[in-house]
């Protein structure tokens, strides 16, 4: 079991999750964040931290979200750890409004 960053992170990248993660399991590129399933301890802290509910427990992934599991695991391997709050993307607030949060 792990947690997975899904589609809502794209265009947002709020990074609040990375601050609340107790084990530094978040990695990021310029577009979004990814969770390293080898490091995540399934503590749930990131789920309520995300303003756009992008993070789900593996257990709760919908069939349309399943592919994010693989993407998170793959991308997290190569990207740097993000453990501090960063500026959200310029499109973040518009995207949040669009998503209804």
């Amino acid at each position: 079991m792990t947690h997975v960053v899904t589609e809502n992170c794209s265009q947002c990248r709020f990074t609040d999750c990375a601050v609340t993660c107790p084990v530094q399991c978040f990695h990021g590129d310029g577009e979004r964040l990814y969770i390293d399933p080898e490091v995540c301890i399934d503590c749930n802290a990131c789920i309520p931290a995300c303003p756009v509910q992008a993070i789900r427990e593996e257990f709760h992934l919908t069939p349309e979200q399943e592919h994010w599991r693989e993407i998170n695991a793959e991308r997290a391997k190569d990207l740097p750890v993000i453990s501090a709050k960063q500026q959200p993307l310029p499109t973040a607030e518009a995207r949040r409004a669009e998503l209804g949060f």
Partner: peptide, 12 residues
Amino acid sequence: TGIIGTNRVDSI
């Protein structure tokens, strides 16, 4: 209140 990670935010 909160869980382990909540303390990281707090201590920062």
